[in-house]
């Protein structure tokens, strides 16, 4: 393979201010050699990383996400945020697996401020591993649209996933062993499948259906006719939306795009109105509405 075509994985790093970021800094100051594939975002604590950040990173084309925090029980905050990071990563790995991505693309490590060499070693091992996996999606054989669709769905469900996590996936004892035991155990598996996986599959199914239904419902002539009736004026926005809703009983995304374009209003304003009123629906309704 020619050098120019060598695959270079893009890695996004979330490093905690007190330990791992300082460790990475030390690695640099000490001139330890490691591959330059990681771009770093500094956070006050690894516990602040949200699943939404991770899936956002993947959906913008990052091939891997690295999270670095303080060693367990060494957190600089009384809340011990790194335990939160730990359980979050367990759940996210499971989610990645569920949507067909390699869970190794997400990695959590503990690096203290004095362990510059440890940070370099981890990178020296992580980057070649990711090179072998190949670009995100392609490496797993998922096509681009499907990947985007699935990641979008997970991102949408993030609030729900976090709720499940805080309500049902709590580990009462804060030790690494207890966490490991719980998150690799049968109980977690069951809860994940029942509460998260099923919900996600349902969501994927419904949004796939809505997408096709939306594409079918878009009859540009019909919409243009309604808009034309109001002389294509931006102030008739609510009237236009009401009439469209009367005709097709919901407002598919493609239709809204068309309305924005024709009336020359930004999508943000359309969404503001559509989400303000309960009358408008962004999903198809049943026959009786």
């Amino acid at each position: 393979m020619a050098a120019g075509h060598q695959f270079e994985p893009r890695i996004l790093g979330f490093l905690c201010n007190w330990c791992c970021y300082a460790g990475a800094d030390l690695a640099g100051v000490s001139r330890f050699q490691y591959p330059p594939n990681i771009r770093v975002i500094r956070l006050m604590c690894s516990g602040r990383v949200d699943p939404a950040h991770i899936f956002r990173a993947f959906s913008t084309g990052q091939d891997a996400v690295f999270i670095g925090g303080c060693h367990l029980n060494d957190c600089h905050y009384v809340t011990h945020g790194n335990y939160d990071a730990l359980s979050m990563v367990y759940v996210c790995k499971k989610l990645l697996e569920h949507i067909g991505l390699n869970p190794e693309r997400l990695r959590l490590e503990w690096v203290s401020a004095g362990e510059g060499i440890r940070f370099a070693n981890i990178m020296n091992e992580f980057v070649p591993g990711m090179e072998k996996l190949g670009p995100i999606g392609k490496g797993e054989g998922i096509n681009e649209d499907e990947l985007r669709f699935k990641l979008e769905a997970v991102t949408k469900l993030t609030p729900y996933i976090k709720l499940v996590q805080s309500e049902r996936l709590r580990v009462s004892v804060r030790t690494e062993d207890a966490y490991h035991q719980f998150f690799t155990g049968e109980e977690f598996n069951r809860l994940f499948n029942e509460l998260i996986a099923d919900e996600l599959d349902l969501y994927l199914h419904v949004s796939a259906r809505n997408q096709t239904a939306g594409k079918e419902a878009v009859d540009n002539d019909r919409i243009d006719r309604i808009i034309g009736k109001h002389q294509g004026q931006a102030r008739s926005l609510i009237q236009v939306l009401l009439e469209i809703q009367d005709e097709i009983h919901w407002l598919p995304h493609d239709v809204l795009d068309r309305v924005c374009e024709k009336l020359d209003v930004p999508l943000s304003r359309v969404m503001q109105i559509v989400t303000f009123h309960k009358t408008f629906s962004l999903i198809p309704r049943g026959r009786k509405e």
Binding site: Q272, I273, F276, H277
Partner: peptide
Amino acid sequence: LDIGIFVSGESSALMRSIEGNP
């Protein structure tokens, strides 16, 4: 024509609605 939410009967809200705003 507007959607029946109570506050749209208030004068300034009603006028914003006629302008095509929430």
